[in-house]
């Protein structure tokens, strides 16, 4: 283990912590100014942000192996939450065990930077194996549904999120501005800022609903405000954290803004299908882990392939 955080990543992390400290002070001031209003939820949310960012700092502060396994554990939490939500068949108990085993294997490919295996292991091998294992048990009632939901969960929470970790496996030479750690920070920061900016601009200006059937609180104004903020920040941070040129960084911002929204509403659709409001209760004030990682299930793979195509 070593502490080799590139200078710009360290400065960015400190800046994030400063912003968060400001948010905490602001919430405390609001509570004092208007004691009659209930800010418990907001306070909880900010406090949970602290834990999330401290875990993230821990993930990048040590060497790459530690980052990969911390992110692997995050995948484990997300997949566990998914499996706790969906109806599973009693008969598939052992199949689920094999599905869990796919997590350390997938992150092992990331740790060893074996791109070819990383990119096919879950879509091909896990996909074929788990369905075959289910067939061997012999329960055909609800087979397609069980095999489909299980694979959907692996694809989003393990395959999709592992792209975050794979950013650190890209050759350091591809990004003179801080390597993979900086790209990881850029992606996660923009995705989360996008979530927050969409929420705030939706609250402030939201009038026209985007997809009322899936997520009644999502508005066109919120989406636009989020995408604009994200794109501006993507452009501003790119020369400092990424190898992207100005037009490329604007495209990256649009991708993260638009598809962060897509990830968010996709997980909303899953929750609505199952009939729950939150994916879990692990993050006080936010809901479950998936409620926070939903956007990243889309932005992580899209951003990795965007950067990789252009610069690696």
């Amino acid at each position: 283990m070593s502490f080799e955080v590139p200078d710009n990543v360290r400065v960015a992390l400190l800046a994030i912590l400063a912003v968060l400290a400001l948010a905490s002070i602001l919430v405390a001031a609001m509570v004092r100014a208007r004691p009659e209003r209930d800010y418990t939820e907001l306070g909880l949310r900010v406090r949970t942000w602290w834990s999330i960012i401290l875990v993230f700092c821990a993930a990048v502060a040590f060497d790459r192996t530690v980052s990969v396994w911390v992110l692997g554990f995050v995948s484990f939490l997300a997949f566990k939450e998914f499996l706790s939500l969906i109806p599973t068949r009693r008969a598939d108990h052992r199949v689920l065990f094999w599905a869990y085993l796919a997590i350390p294997i997938q992150y092992y490919w990331v740790a060893t930077a074996w791109y070819g295996m990383f990119i096919i292991f879950i879509p091909v091998y896990a996909f074929l194996f788990l369905a075959m294992r289910m067939v061997l048990i012999g329960e055909t009632q609800g087979f397609l549904r069980a095999a489909g939901t299980l694979h959907w969960g692996l694809m989003t929470t393990v395959f999709g999120l592992s792209h975050m970790a794979y950013l650190t496996a890209l050759p350091a030479a591809g990004n003179p501005n801080g390597g993979g750690d900086a790209l990881l920070l850029y992606l996660v920061l923009l995705t989360e800022v996008n979530d927050i900016a969409q929420y705030i601009s939706g609250k402030a200006f939201g009038r026209h609903k985007v997809i009322p059937k899936v997520s009644p609180k999502k508005t066109v104004e919120g989406l636009a405000g989020g995408v604009l903020t994200t794109t501006a920040l993507a452009w501003a941070l790119a020369p400092w954290l990424t190898p992207l040129t100005a037009p490329e960084s604007i495209a990256a911002g649009l991708i993260i803004g638009l598809f962060g929204f897509a990830g968010d509403v996709t997980v909303s659709a899953v929750k609505r299908d199952i009939g729950v409001k939150d994916s879990g209760s692990m993050l006080p004030g936010h809901g479950g882990v998936l409620d926070r990682l939903d956007s990243l299930t889309y932005t992580a793979p899209l951003f990795l392939h965007f950067v990789r195509y252009l610069h690696y």
Partner: peptide
């Protein structure tokens, strides 16, 4: 709630899930 699904009677394999 949920523990009977994580490690049911008669199973030796524990399958994690939130409870």
């Amino acid at each position: 709630h949920g523990l009977g699904l994580a490690l049911p009677r008669g199973e030796a394999l524990l399958v994690p899930r939130f409870c």
